[in-house]
Simulated assay, not measured.
Amino acid sequence: MGEVKNADNFERILDSLAEGFGHAERVIVNKAGAEAFEKIMKPKVPYSTKTHSGKSVHLRDSLVTEQHPNGSISVGFTAKSHKGYIGRFQNDGWDVRDRNGVQHGHVPGKHFWEESAKEAQVVLPKTMAIIAKQIIDGKVKP
Results as ranks from 00 to 15, higher is better:
residue 120 A to Y: 05
residue 22 G to L: 02
residue 85 Y to I: 12
residue 89 F to P: 04
residue 19 E to I: 06
residue 40 I to M: 02
residue 94 W to A: 07
residue 116 S to L: 02
residue 134 Q to K: 04
residue 137 D to C: 03
residue 140 V to T: 08
residue 4 V to T: 12
residue 90 Q to M: 14
residue 50 K to H: 08
residue 120 A to M: 04
residue 14 L to H: 03
residue 106 H to N: 14
residue 33 G to W: 01
residue 113 W to R: 15
residue 81 S to E: 09
residue 115 E to T: 11
residue 97 R to D: 03
residue 97 R to V: 09
residue 29 V to T: 01
residue 84 G to R: 06
residue 129 A to G: 03
residue 68 H to S: 10
residue 71 G to S: 02
residue 23 H to V: 02
residue 87 G to A: 15
residue 123 V to A: 11
residue 37 F to R: 01
residue 38 E to K: 13
residue 66 E to W: 04
residue 1 M to R: 11
residue 89 F to H: 10
residue 97 R to Q: 12
residue 100 N to T: 12
residue 16 S to P: 03
residue 134 Q to Y: 00
residue 94 W to G: 07
residue 86 I to P: 04
residue 6 N to C: 04
residue 112 F to C: 07
residue 18 A to K: 07
residue 52 H to G: 14
residue 99 R to H: 12
residue 7 A to W: 08
residue 103 Q to R: 13
residue 24 A to N: 11
residue 85 Y to H: 14
residue 67 Q to L: 14
residue 61 D to P: 07
residue 60 R to A: 14
residue 36 A to R: 04
residue 59 L to K: 06
residue 101 G to S: 05
residue 52 H to I: 13
residue 141 K to L: 11
residue 62 S to T: 06
residue 41 M to F: 10
residue 22 G to E: 05
residue 125 P to C: 09
residue 130 I to A: 10
residue 127 T to I: 15
residue 126 K to Q: 15
residue 99 R to D: 09
residue 112 F to D: 09
residue 19 E to T: 11
residue 135 I to N: 00
residue 134 Q to G: 01
residue 116 S to R: 01
residue 112 F to T: 10
residue 68 H to W: 05
residue 96 V to S: 14
residue 125 P to H: 09
residue 53 S to W: 13
residue 4 V to F: 10
residue 79 A to N: 10
residue 30 N to M: 03
residue 105 G to C: 04
residue 117 A to I: 09
residue 30 N to S: 07
residue 85 Y to W: 12
residue 48 S to K: 06
residue 55 K to Q: 11
residue 17 L to F: 08
residue 5 K to C: 11
residue 102 V to Y: 12
residue 24 A to G: 07
residue 18 A to C: 04
residue 75 V to Q: 00
residue 15 D to T: 13
residue 132 A to C: 00
residue 3 E to F: 15
residue 121 Q to M: 10
residue 33 G to Y: 01
residue 64 V to M: 08
residue 38 E to Y: 03
residue 6 N to K: 09
residue 91 N to F: 05
residue 24 A to Y: 06
residue 111 H to C: 05
residue 44 K to F: 08
residue 100 N to P: 02
residue 56 S to H: 14
residue 103 Q to T: 13
residue 111 H to V: 02
residue 86 I to K: 02
residue 80 K to P: 10
residue 131 I to K: 02
residue 53 S to M: 08
residue 99 R to L: 08
residue 140 V to N: 05
residue 35 E to C: 01
residue 82 H to T: 02
residue 4 V to W: 12
residue 138 G to K: 01
residue 62 S to D: 06
residue 105 G to T: 07
